[in-house]
Amino acid sequence: MRAAVYNLMATGLLAGFLAASPEPAVAQAQSITVYTSYEEDEAAAFLVAAKKDLPDIDVKMLRLSTGDLAARILAESANPQHDVVWGWAVTNMIDPRILALLEPYEPKGIDKVAAQYRDAGKKWFAVTGYMAAFCVNNERLKAKNLPLPTSWEDLLDPRFKGEVVMPNPASSGTGYLQIASIIQQRGEEKGWEYLKGLDKNIAQYIKSGSRPCNVASAGEFAVGASFALRAIKNIAEGFPITMVIPKEGAGNELEANALVAASKKKDAARRFLDWTLSPGAVNAYYDWKEIVTVAGGRMPERFVKAGLPADISSAMFKMDFARAGSERTQIIDRWKKDIER
């Protein structure tokens, strides 16, 4: 009996390993690996569009959060496993260690992308982006008898003490774009002064960019500084929250695409990058993203209903991305020294 059990176990193990070993190379050589940080549901929708327009390319996609993906790409840098980076924060992309892994490429139709949304060195171009927004819980606001904040300035009101959460800029890209925009808007000195004042009201610096909105949606806190799309999706889910775009102009971040220099399937990778500027892709982007850098689509109804202004550029602060990228270490170090708890 025991021998039989052992045999069974051995067979099972073997079968498991065989089943798990890499599939034999598919006859169709056009298979590329794409790393992305688009949110889970967006990425899935975009991928459907890509597969429809590029039936002969087998796009294998791995979705990780911005920070996880940075760690992954850097850890793999000796032997990159991906061909394309798709929809990944520009402030991460312009890290010199990342840029070193990329190859310049100008996709078809790059002229549609304004110069401020692409790299002068041609290593990346951004077709989408996201912007900061507050998620304000209506129920909690009422229970605590608080006014609806409309700007960063409003959050200094002492009545908000312990009711505001924001991402920790040291661990979250959204958190960094928020404080970078505040410093760029107000200037070095006034910016830091403001952040120190705001600190008095902050209940927690949360380690992810989407979580402040999620906890505000759950009613744990009244205001969660997060990004607009998270607010729009949570409103669609039915949470009793209001999306507020700060009056000072919302900080924002671009999501860029790039070709990996070590790719062994550059033809297919280039075709995929061309596709990211094609009407098929742009249509899909307009369905999901509040910021699309090329013309050709309209903002969906649910965005407007959630409170996004039709002319999005009026609500956005004109970020200096190069400056935000180059100052990153210095700003985060100072934030950790002066503010982090």
Binding site: S65, D68, A70, A170, I332
Partner: peptide, 10 residues
């Protein structure tokens, strides 16, 4: 987590 994921500082 802050160092590795937040700042890619292995």
């Amino acid at each position: 987590y802050n160092q590795v994921i937040g700042q890619a500082n292995f």
